[in-house]
Simulated assay, not measured.
Amino acid sequence: MTEVTTSEAGAGGATTPDRVLEQQAELLHAYSRHLGAERGRSEHTRRAYLGDVRHLLVFAARRGIDGIDELRIADLRAWLGEQADAGAARSTIARRAASARTFLRWAERTGRIPSDPSLRLVAPKRRPTLPGVLRQDEAGELLDLATVRADDADPIHVRDRAMLELLYASGIRVGELAALDVDDLDLRQGVVRVLGKGAKERVVPFGAPARRAVEDWLAARPRVVGAHSGAALFLGRRGRRVDARQVRTVVHELLSHLPDAPDLGPHGLRHSAATHLLEGGADLRMVQEILGHASLATTQIYTHVSVDRLRRSYEQAHPRA
């Protein structure tokens, strides 16, 4: 393993982040390969894990720690404590603690460190938060607005309507939407094949409005197809596959025209779809399958959302609430 020493780090012995990460490049590359090839993590997840590990390595080097085999539980606690003192959110600290545990467990298993110092590392528990959602009438207004705008025959507006209809109808993640290819859709049966977290494939149904919107987009799609389009379902004006940032921009922009609706991104449409399914009487395990949650406990947060909204409606409507 390549070591980082303060004497090598730069002029006057100062440790610089770039120098630290340059000398740990081989270690980080090996860990990235492990996350992708062995654990099936997506590019987005690998990027998040590696960012947390880089943060830890730079912190360790500032403390004069030459290699990860010298890390101790006190160093890890000091790392988390520094972030807490800087005002980092509890969720951020909890995520970084989990990233450190995953990394150091891998390092021990592959013989890079003699023992895992994170075994007794305790991070603050995340406070449970209820996801923001649209009311059913607000979701309808959003999709109506997208439909009206698509009437101008601009192929990108036709695409926007199809993306929003499919996001809300299926509850898929924005990254899953952006990764769709044309042949992932079965319009006759009204289902879409999605590659989710952990490279797990699932089939998700969608309704007639989403099918019509996608059919309209497939008719308009040839007008923006370019040399780099490939089989991508949703394209930008230059013919390249859309990315999650572009989809977020579309959702935020359209919601800005609904003054009373919360400002949500594509994930808000996923939350809304799950909540509305449960409010309509859907089985919790069916919603779990549609969303691609590994654990039913993750899906159960939407039951809390529904109960919370039921309580607010009751308090507004009942004379003795």
Rank of each mutant, 00 (worst) to 15 (best):
A231Y: 07
D184M: 05
A208N: 11
K197D: 06
D184N: 13
D183E: 15
E215V: 00
R221F: 13
P205I: 11
Q189K: 12
P205C: 03
K197P: 11
A231F: 12
R221T: 00
G230N: 01
V214H: 00
A210D: 03
V191D: 04
L195R: 15
F206K: 05
R202L: 11
L180D: 10
L195P: 07
A231K: 11
K197Q: 09
L233P: 12
G196M: 04
L218K: 02
L195K: 09
G226D: 08
R223C: 05
A231Q: 14
F234C: 04
D181Q: 09
V194L: 08
R212V: 00
L233N: 10
P222V: 14
L233C: 13
L187G: 02
G226Y: 13
V224C: 03
L187D: 11
A179D: 15
V225P: 07
L218Q: 01
W217P: 00
R193G: 05
Q189L: 15
A232F: 12
E201L: 01
L195W: 05
V225F: 10
F206G: 03
Q189H: 14
V194R: 03
A220H: 12
D183T: 15
R223K: 15
L218V: 01
S229Y: 09
D184K: 05
R211G: 08
D216C: 02
A208S: 12
P222H: 01
L185H: 08
K197G: 07
R211T: 15
G198W: 13
L233F: 11
K200H: 14
G196W: 07
V182G: 08
L218F: 09
V225R: 08
R223T: 15
P222N: 03
V191M: 12
V203L: 14
G196A: 07
V224D: 11
G198A: 10
L195Y: 03
L185C: 11
W217C: 01
D183R: 12
R212A: 05
K197R: 10
P205D: 07
D181T: 03
L177D: 10
L177E: 04
L235H: 10
